[in-house]
Simulated assay, not measured.
Amino acid sequence: MNHADRMNEEQPGGKRGEMIVVCGAKGGIGKTALAVNLAVALTKKNIQISVMDGDFQFGDVALALDLHPTFSIKDIVADIDSMDRFALAGFLIHHNSGVKVLAAPERPEFADMIKANIIDRVCDLLLSQQDYLIVDTGAGLPENTLQFIEKADQIFVVTTLEMTAIKNTKLMLDTLDVLGYRNKTHLVINRATMESVIKAADVPDILGFDTSIYIPNEFHLVAQSLNIGIPFVSNQAKSDLAKAVFKMAEQLISRREISLFKPKQNSFIKQLFHRGGHL
């Protein structure tokens, strides 16, 4: 496909969607629940959104939305060179909220099939037709997660108040800092109201952040949501947990509007923000 064809894949007006990567230094900290609920919260603003399950070995996005995939990213591999956004649309699973999901492979051994060129092409095609692409990643910083992070406009690093989570999150944030991604990284403290010797208000300072996003601890509500495959922003919209995720969605939309309509004289600041330190 030549350059002109790729340019034609952009959204009307030449817009590109915004790519959001949800990651964390360890498993079991709520990344998937946050990613799918944030996606569904954004659809309530009449926004086109896709979720890509970037945990190619043990992804749970489809399960969290009670979807039963016919296709996964593995099925795209053979046709990647001729793939366009219309062909790709046939591999997406539609959730009743409006979210479109690209599922992880059904078995861990298929993860090795998803090479860097596949990730790159699929992300670009999804961004050409969606307002937002949310990528839910596996734990830590494997090679494919680093690739997602490099392409991202916004990175949400999720942690909890557990000592092991904070220790590993500090190492992860230091690594992202060294790689030059600090400007697009946001800290999310999940289960922020849980009982802990570490106070949620102290975590940003411990991790070297001025601010963070706080998600309250409603563990049973999240567990029930994941078990039945219904996002809590849909059936528990009045809960403090859902309200915190809706607030995240509002902030994302506001940030995107600011960046899209910022006057020309601020373009240098805009570049700094979007390039995430690649100077």
Rank of each mutant, 00 (worst) to 15 (best):
176 L>S: 03
204 P>L: 07
183 N>G: 13
190 N>A: 09
192 A>R: 01
205 D>C: 04
197 V>F: 12
197 V>P: 12
195 E>K: 15
179 L>W: 07
189 I>K: 08
192 A>W: 03
178 V>I: 13
203 V>I: 12
201 A>D: 15
189 I>Q: 00
179 L>I: 06
184 K>T: 08
194 M>T: 06
184 K>G: 01
196 S>T: 03
186 H>C: 11
188 V>C: 06
188 V>L: 05
204 P>K: 05
190 N>F: 02
194 M>G: 12
194 M>L: 07
178 V>H: 13
183 N>S: 11
201 A>N: 12
191 R>C: 09
176 L>C: 01
187 L>C: 01
184 K>N: 02
204 P>S: 13
189 I>P: 04
197 V>G: 10
176 L>D: 00
190 N>G: 09
199 K>A: 10
183 N>Y: 01
194 M>F: 01
186 H>V: 06
187 L>V: 03
190 N>Q: 09
200 A>E: 04
189 I>T: 08
186 H>K: 14
198 I>N: 11
180 G>Q: 08
204 P>H: 06
190 N>W: 05
181 Y>L: 11
185 T>Q: 00
197 V>T: 14
184 K>Q: 07
187 L>S: 01
194 M>Q: 15
204 P>Q: 10
177 D>I: 05
192 A>F: 06
181 Y>V: 01
205 D>Q: 15
180 G>K: 07
178 V>M: 12
199 K>R: 14
200 A>H: 02
180 G>S: 08
179 L>H: 01
199 K>C: 00
204 P>C: 10
199 K>L: 13
202 D>A: 13
177 D>K: 11
205 D>F: 04
190 N>K: 06
199 K>N: 07
178 V>L: 08
185 T>W: 01
183 N>T: 06
178 V>F: 07
190 N>E: 07
199 K>T: 06
195 E>M: 13
197 V>Q: 15
179 L>F: 08
195 E>G: 05
198 I>Q: 11
179 L>C: 07
197 V>C: 10
193 T>Q: 08
194 M>S: 14
183 N>K: 13
196 S>D: 03
178 V>C: 00
197 V>D: 15
198 I>A: 14
201 A>G: 00
203 V>C: 00
176 L>N: 03
194 M>P: 00
195 E>S: 13
201 A>W: 00
184 K>M: 04
203 V>F: 04
189 I>S: 04
182 R>D: 08
195 E>R: 14
189 I>V: 14
205 D>V: 09
